[in-house]
């Protein structure tokens, strides 16, 4: 039993990827769309894992970066008439640039003050999109752009491949010298500085990487829906991305991917409950988090496994300090 779980843990990422590759063949069209959205969210959430999980900088404006990526792609294709691949590259580049700029307030702000700044940024972007009607289509939304690849299925495979590569990269970053610097930032900024970590550069890298993945996720979002509207990029959306990072365990790449897909599909799975759906959704989340916080001090998949009594090796003890 223990052996089986060790094995499962070792190959978890691979197993999840294989399941995702098999998804188009075993799901209905609607279910497939939900899985697609899950994978697209997972790319975004891996970026947040670097920013929130590794570096400890809480952002509630991530939906705005997603919007930047999606809208840049859409506008470049519809209004400028660029090739989709060029548009995608430029969209990711612009989002990375803007996201890196978000690191500037983070030089001086931390904790709740940084959160407020990112919320403000999120609202600014959403309202800009709403009001720059000639360019963005305003409340009518933006449509009529081409996909990266002709068939939805191929876009999906491209997305899964990207997710796989990104997952490995994010995992490697976590174990690398850069990852160590980011984690030291999360633990104690003064101590990190004294150890010779260039705090400003580390913050910028963290924001840049997370914005890059948000931009890429935005491009895929535009590809999936074929229609963009400012309503999909509200602060509530940002909060649900935060939820995905937290439920995934804040440190685990595989956890982040699984939790992205689960949380994306949970409202759809609960749809049969009709009017009490949101109530049950919140209850499921609350119970899940509560159970894990009590037993392990961490609300995570690993924590859930532990709560259910599966031996998974070292669970982190609660900090004493």
């Amino acid at each position: 039993m223990v052996k089986l779980f060790k094995w499962l843990k070792k190959y978890a990422l691979l197993i999840v990827m294989l399941l995702l590759l098999a998804a188009p063949s075993v799901t209905s069209q609607y279910e497939f769309y939900v899985v697609q959205r899950g994978v697209q969210n997972a790319i975004h959430v891996l970026g947040l894992l670097i920013l929130i999980g590794y570096s400890g900088m809480l952002s509630l404006g991530s939906a705005a970066l997603l919007a930047t990526g999606a809208y840049t792609y859409g506008i470049l294709l519809v209004k400028v008439g660029l090739n989709p691949w060029v548009g995608a590259a430029l969209a990711v580049a612009l989002t990375t640039f803007i996201g890196t700029g978000l690191a500037l307030p983070a030089f001086r702000l931390a904790g709740p003050f940084l959160v407020v700044t990112t919320v403000g940024f999120g609202e600014i972007v959403r309202i800009l999109i709403l009001n720059m009607e000639p360019i963005t289509g305003g409340a009518y939304g933006l449509a009529g752009f081409a996909k990266l690849l002709p068939s939805t299925r191929w876009v999906y495979y491209l997305m899964v491949a990207a997710l796989f590569l990104i997952a490995i990269a994010v995992k490697r970053i976590g174990e690398s010298r850069l990852g160590l610097a980011l984690k030291s930032l999360r633990e104690d900024e003064v101590a990190a500085e004294v150890m010779g970590v260039d705090v400003r550069r580390a913050k910028m890298v963290s924001f840049a990487l997370s914005a890059m993945l948000a931009g890429l996720s935005g491009v895929f979002l535009a590809n999936l829906t074929g229609y963009l509207s400012p309503d999909s990029f509200t602060a509530a959306e940002s909060a649900s991305y935060l939820l995905m990072v937290v439920m995934g365990g804040m440190q685990s790449v595989t956890g982040a991917i699984v939790s992205s897909i689960v949380i994306t599909s949970l409202p759809e799975v609960l749809r049969f409950l009709s009017s009490s759906r949101l109530l049950v959704y919140s209850l499921v989340l609350l119970v899940y988090l509560r159970l894990n916080w009590v037993r392990t001090g961490k609300g995570s998949l690993a924590g859930l496994m532990k709560t259910l009594g599966f031996p998974l090796g070292t669970g982190r003890a609660k900090d004493r300090s």
Partner: peptide, 30 residues
């Protein structure tokens, strides 16, 4: 720090959520 000047700050300031080994690795960061 790179020039060879190390500072043990007041109140220790270890990284509480990292392991001892990880803490030491950050010491060699520069």
């Amino acid at each position: 720090v790179k020039m060879g000047l190390a500072h043990v700050p007041e109140g220790r300031l270890v990284f509480p959520g990292l392991t001892v080994t990880e803490n030491l690795k950050i010491g060699a960061y520069t």
